[in-house]
Design a protein around this nucleic acid. Structure first.
Lengths: 204, 204
DNA sequence: GTCTATATGTTGATAGAC
DNA sequence: GTCTATCAACATATAGAC
């Protein structure tokens, strides 16, 4: 999926100038992440796009729809991880690692969209619906953690709920600092995260 | 320090009714965390406090000062961890654990204030100044991580910057789910975090 | 310590021209 | 696909009464 940040990017759109919905969305998501969704005005978006406020309404019916489109892109990516073959068969330990690596891949590939999702507070209906879908995803991963624990591959001296939350916390917090294109590749990052979470930082 | 959430809490304030600066601040911080600082209007605060907008200006000169007071409380707590005796002497490994436990203690004791600090995006001068103080704190902890690495107590197959960011990510993400007064005490949480970060979740 | 009234600008969204 | 013009509602903050 191509998400351009300026009008008439040749690779993204052939033909006439001006924005399309995807390129408007990319700019909107960046602004939502910088100021927060509620604090981002259509006037600010218009200024960044270089068009008038009302021109935005040609691409999207409301500010809430910009949010809904963005969150759907993030959630769709995460949900697809759970339906991939590697998430369904084998030892719980291996399935868990597969899902965590898949989550990390979606997080880095759709970074601004997932960032927006993870910063939601549930203040509007659109946000609450997205948070409900996110909770369903979280519950399925939590079930995998429990299975790996029962299997004996995960330590039992930490409460299962705490275990799941620490795993998610570690992974989700990556949106706050990881930037693709830097020295750290997404694959190496995934290796590092799996290493710390399951084997720890101490030398042994 | 007492931070009340309603006017004339007997333990917090003796004498006349009405809010004082601390109780206004507590309500404001909760609202900032729920909606984001920029998206929280003085009208919303007035409604939650049950007083008029202009009455708030009796306690604090501006909305930005509410933010500044709150961030100062969070940063003061974090900075005090680095000047405590345990952070200054001994093996780097032990000093690092001491500082991380101290950070976790401040995070849980001043939870709403630290939450606000960690969600800043740097859109105003007040925010940028706070982020600069936070970066200074982060740099000092990063130096401890580097020292523990050189000492040989921390694994070398993960980049030092990544190591520090994963540690901070894991700890900072706790504000998104931990609630004091629940079944998990702050001390047990700190034990769990230290255990996962340094020894990993795998059973050995 | 709180109020009403007010000043001045910005909000999301629409109507209709080009 | 973009524009100007417009709307009612709401933003931060101040002045001055009680």
């Amino acid at each position: 999926m191509t998400v351009a940040g300026s009008p008439s990017t040749p690779a993204a759109r052939r033909g006439r100038p001006g924005y399309d919905q995807q390129s408007v969305l990319a700019v909107a998501v960046a602004a939502f992440n910088r100021h927060g969704y509620e604090a981002t005005s259509m006037g600010m978006l218009a200024e960044e796009l270089g068009i008038s406020k009302s021109a935005i309404y040609h691409h999207v019916p409301s500010k809430g729809d910009l949010l809904r489109l963005a969150l759907d892109h993030a959630l769709g990516g995460l949900e697809s991880v759970l339906t991939r073959p590697g998430a369904m068969v084998g030892a719980a330990d291996a399935r868990l690692e597969f899902v965590l690596r898949g989550t990390l891949a979606v997080l880095t590939e759709r970074l601004p969209f997932v960032t927006l999702l993870l910063r939601l507070r549930g203040n509007t209906d659109v946000e609450r619906e997205a948070l409900e879908r996110r909770r369903t995803f979280d519950r399925e991963v939590a079930a995998l953690v429990d299975a790996a624990r029962h299997e004996g591959s995960i330590r039992r001296d930490i409460d299962p709920r705490t275990t799941t939350r620490l795993i998610f916390g570690t992974i989700n917090s990556i949106v706050e600092w990881y930037r693709p294109g830097g020295p750290l590749t997404a694959d190496k990052l995934a290796d590092d995260v799996i290493l710390m979470v399951f084997d720890g930082l101490h030398r042994r």
